[in-house]
Amino acid sequence: MTTIVALCIGVVGVVMLVVAQVLRRRASRMPDRGTPELAALHAEVRDTLDRAGWVASVKIYRRRTGAGLLEAYQAVDRIAHDETRGRGSTR
């Protein structure tokens, strides 16, 4: 009986960890674009892209946000494409 209870507690714990991770990722994909912190991060990532390239930009994004590698790469890619589109439309 004790084994079954321990197994159930373990399963519930794992499910809670998975749900927490899914919610964390979902929340990180929906940033408030109006915050000064986010604008500063985007500016820093763009500057680093120009100076040092993709690897350094992804490292900075990960350090500042706590994002995973793939998530950070995708965010830097979005930032780079937003910058490219912005340059193309203003000139």
Rank of each mutant, 00 (worst) to 15 (best):
T2H: 14
T3E: 15
V5M: 15
A6N: 11
A6K: 07
L7S: 10
C8M: 08
G10T: 02
V11S: 06
V12N: 14
V12Q: 15
G13C: 06
G13Q: 03
G13V: 01
V15L: 14
V19A: 11
A20H: 07
A20P: 05
V22Y: 01
R24T: 14
R25C: 08
R26G: 08
A27W: 04
S28P: 03
R29V: 10
P31V: 02
P31N: 03
D32M: 00
T35M: 01
L38P: 04
A40G: 10
A40R: 10
L41Y: 00
H42G: 06
A43S: 10
A43W: 03
E44C: 07
D50H: 12
W54K: 14
W54L: 11
A56P: 05
A56N: 02
S57W: 05
S57F: 05
V58F: 01
I60K: 10
Y61R: 15
R62E: 12
R62Y: 04
R63L: 07
R64Q: 07
R64C: 00
G66E: 05
A67M: 03
A67V: 03
G68Y: 01
G68V: 04
G68R: 03
A72C: 01
Y73D: 14
Y73N: 15
Q74S: 10
V76Y: 00
R78L: 07
R78N: 09
I79S: 02
I79L: 03
A80R: 12
A80I: 02
H81K: 11
D82H: 05
E83Q: 07
T84M: 11
R85P: 06
R85W: 09
R85A: 15
G86V: 02
R87A: 12
T90S: 13
T90F: 13
R91I: 15
